[in-house]
Design a binder for these strands. Structure first.
Lengths: 253, 253
DNA sequence: TTAGGGCCTCACGCAACGGGAGAGTCAATC
DNA sequence: GATTGACTCTCCCGTTGCGTGAGGCCCTAA
């Protein structure tokens, strides 16, 4: 059991931060001394490490909390995902570097511009990732050989991961179909539970997907028609029902 | 002249951000339309680009403002420095990646830990190190005034950075020694190539160093006698030869 | 002339802490 | 046993960097 100060020096964060994380319920120390001192166990440190990884990726704390306290949270999968996201961030930095080089090349040391950059060029990298990814995805997925190209993004998962995903997906969708087939209304508790399970699973596997592929909240149905059609082919009407359920889930939460 | 919305889409930032930067006097548009619309000129876009580079580096806006409105502000130098800092950031990310790999390797896919990481290891990278490295630096540079002044600057390096630097330095100096030992004249192409490599590396690692420790261009020989003595201890005559080579490099370039 | 964008200025809100103030705790030392 | 100094606690206010309306003007196009 470590005191708060020890943890702070170990993890190179401030004591205030640790107290803050306790306050918001993100990282509650697993014990307290008689005097009320926070006492952190090894597991708490592991959790802190995870949190810091997420923070490096600029996830909002609230999101981190949601992810990590979700019933199906899988540390190994999370680490793989984080690795992938960090790789991508590194690439983005690389792009910024390229832009810098380009900019530097465009002026000489005296500060005079040799050849003016176009206004488009000037910002051709700053990663407002949201927009960028959406464009990229649109471009990517608008094409016929889209599936081929998608292989790249999936390549980060191992075969075992994929198996696990398929199984988990199958289970969740099986549950959804069952509830749907039973004629359950989309705002019934059973439906909401099922759709929430699906949402959690989506978050787990697709969190870093561009929105077009991203099944999240109520949005996805409108976004990815291919996905919707597939669902409806297997079970006509299910997609729309899921959409309703997701809405009900949102207003319920 | 661009309207605020155009600038926003170009630079992929929000309109609110632009207004905010105007409010705090960081980026005032160089004109207004009759109706009071903000009008941005090309120069404003350049300035915005710079600001965004700084923001990528997480400089506080107040600091960015201070830097950019300072009388001696040099765009070219700023870009070089930004490039260096971004490189460093990328390296830090690399260190995080290493830690992630290490962590992943320590557990198996089922989530069971194979071999527990030590608590120290667990955090051995998160933006970090001040203390550890300062000790090393103190040992190396002694308690000189120069060291005091440069302590802040060095505290920015991670331990991984230092490792990398040492390796790269060793390589470059190895090459220098080899060329020198072969009796090459300091104005020969091989010598110039070697000294240029050294200069580039210096720029990379010491760009924003105080001059006392700063190995740059031909300057360093006169500045840091300790450094020179060290070089000569390892390889008598090399320092002077490097000085010559650096001069030849300057006149050649 | 009316609708639909785009723009304006307040003005309040929020996340993620930083930084005290005031007070208890704990081990070592006088 | 009393004091000292380092460590901790709980409020609670402050700050940065915007997000997000509200309410209202500008401007073109139908």
């Amino acid at each position: 059991m470590y005191q708060i100060g020890e943890v702070a020096t170990l993890a190179k964060v401030s004591i205030r931060l640790l107290r803050h994380y306790d306050e918001i319920g993100l990282l509650a120390p697993s014990g307290r001394s008689e005097a009320g001192y926070r006492l952190y166990a090894h597991g708490d440190l592991q959790r802190l490490q995870q949190i810091l990884f997420y923070r490096t990726l600029e996830f909002p704390l609230e999101e981190i909390k949601r992810l990590m306290t979700a019933p199906g949270f899988d540390r190994h999968a999370a680490l793989l995902q984080q690795r992938e996201l960090i790789r991508r961030k590194a690439q983005e930095l690389g792009a910024v570097l390229d832009l810098l080089e380009h900019t530097i090349a465009g002026i000489d040391p005296s500060g005079q511009e040799k050849n003016t950059m176009s206004t488009k060029e000037m910002f051709e990298v700053f990663p407002d990732m949201k927009q960028e990814y959406q464009d990229e995805a649109q471009e990517r997925w608008g094409n016929t050989d889209a599936w081929k190209q998608s292989a790249a993004r999936w390549s980060k998962y191992t075969r075992a991961d994929m198996e696990r995903m398929k199984q988990e997906m199958a289970q969740v969708f099986g549950q959804l179909e069952k509830v749907f087939a039973a004629g359950t209304r989309p705002d019934a508790p059973a439906a909401i539970a099922a759709i929430e399970a699906q949402r959690l699973l989506s978050d787990k596997w697709f969190y870093d997907c561009p929105k077009e592929l991203h099944v999240k909240g109520t949005e996805w149905v409108a976004r990815d028609e291919r996905y919707v059609r597939n669902i409806d082919k297997n079970c006509p009407g299910l997609a729309a029902w899921m959409h309703q359920a997701a809405k009900a889930n949102l207003t319920a939460g």
